[in-house]
């Protein structure tokens, strides 16, 4: 099937098998290997991207379902060579170790802050319940998201 989608600002038209998952399309056809696959059951959240502005698990969306959509991945967050404040906060707060869950964590954190600009610790934990991390115990991730909230709030 022929589909067209905009990913990180670039429009792509491709022929894909209907069974192709969005995450596979991103990784295998568009070279967006920054987005990764961690499970088969949509539990881990590592593949989280934004589809028309909302976070989704790209392993649980068919590429054909995203025909016509606008997608943002971890690779599309930098502006003028500067990392997004959430990316920066993950770095500054040591919110990653192996880094495999990080793209999904960051994409979900940005979505969360869109809804809840100044989240409590509990709200951050709840907002990230669909993203698993095996390295950090989440404490510094929570800290980073709240730090980023402050940063984004100061900018507004």
């Amino acid at each position: 099937m022929r589909i067209t989608m905009t990913v990180d600002g670039t429009s792509y038209t491709d022929d894909v098998e209907p069974r192709t998952l969005l995450v596979q399309h991103l990784r295998e056809n568009l070279g967006k290997v920054g987005t990764v696959i961690g499970c088969d059951t949509s539990n881990c959240g590592a593949c989280t991207v934004h589809l028309n502005g909302r976070s989704v698990k790209s392993c649980s969306v068919l590429a054909v379902q995203a025909d016509g959509a606008e997608i943002t991945t971890i690779e599309g967050l930098e502006r003028d060579g500067q990392p997004h404040p959430v990316q920066q906060a993950f770095h500054e707060n040591h919110a990653l170790q192996c880094g495999f869950c990080t793209p999904g964590m960051i994409m979900q954190s940005i979505d969360l802050l869109g809804d809840t600009p100044d989240p409590s610790e509990e709200q951050v934990r709840e907002g990230l319940e669909g993203n698993l991390c095996r390295c950090t115990g989440y404490q510094n991730i929570v800290k980073a998201v709240r730090a980023a909230a402050g940063e984004l709030g100061a900018k507004r």
Binding site: P18, D40, S60, V61, Q65
Partner: peptide, 26 residues
């Protein structure tokens, strides 16, 4: 039938079901 796909997709990915046609209501 494919609704939001959040239950169906894991089932398809684990190949616990292999429909010939997927009808997307989206």
């Amino acid at each position: 039938v494919l609704g939001g796909g959040q239950s169906l997709m894991p089932v398809l990915r684990m190949r616990l079901a292999a429909p010939t046609t997927v009808v997307d209501l989206g």
